[in-house]
Write a protein that binds this DNA or RNA. Structure first.
Lengths: 220, 220
DNA sequence: TAATATTTTTAGATTTGTCTAATTTTTATT
DNA sequence: AATAAAAATTAGACAAATCTAAAAATATTA
């Protein structure tokens, strides 16, 4: 029932991609994993043999129910460790991803359960992403991308879609973090960029690409 | 400057063996690592190439100063994680070894330092073994094996030499843990076994093998 | 739809860490 | 000191995870 670190990484990555696109193809998975398509094909065969994947040669693929549960287990471990690193060890929230990438592969189920309890069974990680419980259940939030947001309404940042170091640096520059209040003042049709007000700071303009990756929560 | 998990395991194992015997040989390292002598030879070449080991073909070997520092780094990580598992996650002290074997290979130096601070810079792990600081310095204790202990003197258990699951189970049975007070009442010449009194319990007899692996601390 | 481009897979090589079996070196014993 | 025994090493193989280069399948487009 255990998987190798490499298998877990692939499973997790397929999971995230198929949430966006339904089905995943070899090249996009290779790009996301920083490997070659040939390596992906090799791993797809392994995951199919382990009955985690719906996959036929030359076709797009997706995790089956077993695969999704396996993915949620990895996501759970990753996000619990991120929470630990930020809340207990006081890491900056934009520095914890790589360390959590390693910690998530430690295999003890009891460790994960005890860590969860120690942390107070948090529902969201420091980036605002929901932490699946041990059954794979995920809390749902009423959140919306900034780019889909009505003007003049103030929302609270609840999660960030793109969690690269580059993105997190950028958000830091704009003084945007989880819990920050943001109001969209104007949308420029030309390039989709938004004029926003961040807390009590003066207005600023963010690109459409940034806007799409910042999610806010509206009461009601 | 980083090592693979396998390299770290070998380095740590050589370190522990050479503390007992000064020099280490291929077969005993293979036995301790649960591998074959041929695998050990392969690894010895790698460690020598990385300038961690004093080693010449067909001769016994030992870590050099670089190797010792590398070993102490691994020991530090292992014992800090054990401390975390017992003190924070409330694991039984005899259940943490295998999990710490995995956690010790997570590579972030900043993680280790923050963990150390979070735990309050403990000097000893839950088995009573000293935790090296980041420079490799180790606290010394005035401890003695039960088998070398004078009669009628009461000592406090400060560490356990053999930390196999089998041993720790046995100690649990005798109600012996770190901090337990023990008085040696009688030594049987026949087989070296000891009659002891554990705290307020009734007397019991432990084998020489157990006695040799229980270390106690005497004030003064 | 035929030619071209893209995507995916296969075949075969590489690296790390392991193994077995055979060989070499060292140590112990008569 | 010669021989036997033990210890250590080499040679060659294997599994996992990756790669490159070539081939096959699918998709695009002219």
């Amino acid at each position: 029932m255990g998987f190798t670190a490499s298998e877990e990484n692939y499973i997790k990555c397929i999971y995230h991609l198929q949430r966006e696109t339904g089905l995943v193809n070899t090249n996009s998975l290779a790009a996301e994993m920083n490997t070659r398509p040939a390596s992906v094909t090799d791993m797809l065969k392994k995951l199919k043999a382990k009955k985690l994947l719906q996959y036929e040669k030359y076709k797009a693929f997706k995790l089956n129910e077993h695969g999704k549960k396996a993915a949620l287990d990895v996501v759970r471990k990753h996000r619990l460790w991120e929470y630990f690193l930020v809340e207990k060890l006081k890491f900056d929230w934009d520095k914890v991803h790589n360390i959590a990438e390693e910690l998530e592969h430690v295999s003890s189920e009891e460790l994960v359960q005890r860590l969860d309890n120690f942390l107070g069974n948090p529902a969201f990680d420091p980036h605002g992403d929901p932490i699946p419980d041990k059954h794979g259940k995920i809390a749902l939030v009423n959140q919306q991308s900034l780019s889909d947001t009505p003007l003049k309404k103030t929302g609270v940042v609840s999660s960030v879609g793109n969690q690269t170091v580059q993105m997190l640096e950028m958000l830091k520059h704009y003084h945007i973090a989880l819990g920050t209040s943001i109001t969209v003042l104007k949308k420029f049709e030309f390039d989709g960029s938004l004029e926003i007000k961040v807390m009590k700071n003066s207005n600023c303009i963010i690109s459409e690409q940034v806007a799409k990756n910042v999610f806010v929560y509206y009461d009601q």
